[in-house]
Amino acid sequence: MEAYVQALLSGLAVGGIYALIALSFSITFTTTRTLNFAQGEFVSFGAFVGVTALLVLTGTASLSLTYPFALVVAGVVAGVVGILVFVLAVRPFAGKPGMSWVMSTIGFGIILQSAGLALWGPAPAKLPGPFGEGIIRIAGAGVRPQEVLILVAAIVILFGFEAVMQHTRLGKATRAVAHSPDVASLMGINVPVVMMGAFAASSALAGVSGVLIAPISTASLYMGLGFALKAFAGAIIGGLDNPRGCIYGGFMLGVVESYVGLWHSQWREIAVFLLIILVLAIRPNGIFGARTLQKV
């Protein structure tokens, strides 16, 4: 019984990371019809920016104060670099026929990773969580405090995002751009700026995810790719064009993965990707995706 509760909580925690990154894919896809294939590198990059921020602040305050600061710094730095991705690797190709942006964003990721290696070296870094390494008991199950933190942080961020999209002028404008950039521009919305903002928000989410996951994963410059791939799978399951669907997809994937791992860890990846194939066979646009095919 405890093992099941434990697997559920761990699955939800990792699922929270998948959900954040899945949402980050959805944000650029809905607004610009492009994806940042450097998202995995942004996760790793964010973790190392966080580690660096913590190092700079070592001894100045307790970790429970510096860790949130590291989260914010990682989000801001990743967001700014995300603007660079848009300006350099996406804007020149977006809305044009062809898929040049696929290669250019992958290329940007490789540059980011290489720059990270030059700056921080290939060794994994230690990023401590703010609540230590102890185990806390929830319903008899042992859970790491960082897992609880991830889950809470993910839920807060996801609800915050939803509130901004539904109730603010900026959120409404972003949804207008997602529906049609041309019609949005007829409202007086500066569409390129909104798209740039979407890339900034998307990259910031990836960077923050890196700082959240690093304490329970190994913070290496290679760690991001695996998370981004799973998160992308979660986004596809949920429906790339539906931000809420992406969030559900991310959590679902985390929990499925965790339960299969309980049974046989070697079967984890097989189960996950079988699930994706099954879902797509029944619903080609994902569980929560638009039912109509995208107009070309």
Binding site: R169, K172, A173, A176, A184, M187, G188, I189
Partner: peptide, 10 residues
């Protein structure tokens, strides 16, 4: 909200 967006420039 459609009307709010119509006034975006203003």
């Amino acid at each position: 909200d459609n009307l709010v967006l119509g006034a975006y420039a203003r």
